[in-house]
Design a protein around this nucleic acid. Structure first.
Lengths: 227, 227
DNA sequence: CGGTAATCTAGAACAAGTTTCAGAACTGAT
DNA sequence: ATCAGTTCTGAAACTTGTTCTAGATTACCG
């Protein structure tokens, strides 16, 4: 398995910080991520082979490793990419439910169904995510923040259609610490449930139940609603 | 990384079913598991190298692979072993809290503190568990059942001291489906929280909060108590 | 005890992640 | 345009999980 514990000595184009990438570099990075997703889509974690990613992206192996210091880094970055897409997609069709918990559950199940369409890709990304060690912490953290953002978005009350320049009536009411705890627990459940599904130990129905169960925690922590 | 997706063609002495092991075989198996735990304790997942496990257990590499068809199988079996110990240990000192949720939280935090004493071992086992693919499903399922048993044990009302031969007053009241859902969600949270702690992305305090948060789901589903 | 099948050993061989290195190509500043 | 420094390429080497093989040992059966 080689040395998956490698320190990240190289520049990390993964973060938009550091030296700004030239156009060609940005293109390379994008090509690599695209190849990664493509290979993962057919064959999952094992099908993403670094040599093949490099060759198929028209890049030397050493370069691939300069951009993504390990296979796990690569797949976590791929997940960031996919999550961003998903966030935008979900944002366009906000959940129809009323209670925050139900809204979150609905959104997560939507995301889940999207993942179902590319189960191998989902497998590769999630396996990489949970297999990641400390050297990938920053990137995993980014993924976590993205997931949190998706959940918080879903939880927020349906935004009244507002005219440009006009401030929202409820300025994204800052979530309470309790709500943040609930969100963290929901994320835990989401990841773990995904894994049990991907490894064939739980059915989709089971995942749905688990998601709905854990989402009750939200309604429990936002007593500002009827109930 | 070799072929982590290998089918298990060999006999699997992992399950007490199948051909009963001879004494020497049982001894070999035990030696291997012991070595595995020892190597994992200092160095985590990466430190458990199959060649070294074999050599240090006084067993040929091929034999190691006959007993445990992959590194993940080996580590998951190691986890089974450790969990069994932990189950017995926990059983000896039942939680002192009254509410089921609090009892479970207390028990899990105890387990968590035990894992803290061997963080590398915990790392190896949990990483293996979440990295396991379909070919390890049966073994992972066993681990899951063990975890469930620990939680259900903690959840059960404190057993009145009873004389031998006498039946318990409450014959382990079968948990409702809702409670089982809650337990599953708790397991999800437990695993995932463990991972975030092991990879340095969450503090122990954070884990405690998450555990306590999710354990509220239990009290939510057992309305037979005061409140 | 003798024979036979299963198990075990030692060691080579293979696969895929990772590292390394010498030289080519590119970049930015003078 | 030129030079210095960085980045990229191509290829080999190294590591560790996994597989394979031929022969030695062991277990079991009559």
């Amino acid at each position: 398995m080689g040395n998956m514990t490698t320190e990240s000595k190289a520049a990390r184009p993964t973060l938009p910080a550091s030296p700004p990438l030239t156009e060609r570099q940005e293109a390379r990075r994008r090509r690599i991520l695209h190849t990664s997703a493509r290979l993962a889509s057919r064959g999952g974690f094992d099908a993403v082979q670094m040599r093949e990613v490099a060759e198929s992206s028209g890049v030397a192996l050493g370069t691939l490793y300069r951009y993504f210091p390990s296979k796990v880094h690569l797949l976590v970055a791929t997940m960031q990419d996919q999550l961003q897409h998903m966030h935008e997609t979900l944002r366009k069709r906000p959940p129809s439910e009323q209670d925050p918990g139900a809204r979150v559950a609905q959104t997560l199940m939507r995301a889940f169904r999207a993942l179902q369409r590319e189960p191998h890709l989902a497998d590769a990304m999630v396996r990489a995510l949970t297999f990641a060690d400390r050297s990938v912490s920053p990137e995993v953290d980014t993924v976590s923040r993205l997931t949190t953002a998706i959940i918080l978005d879903a939880m927020a009350p349906p935004a009244a259609p507002r005219h440009p320049g006009q401030e929202p009536a409820h300025p994204a009411a800052a979530p309470t610490p309790e709500q943040l705890s609930a969100v963290r627990v929901i994320e835990h459940t989401w990841h773990s449930a995904l894994i049990t599904w991907l490894s064939g130990r739980a059915s989709i129905a089971q995942v749905k139940i688990d998601i709905e169960t854990v989402c009750r925690l939200i309604d429990l922590t936002s007593p500002d609603r009827e109930r």
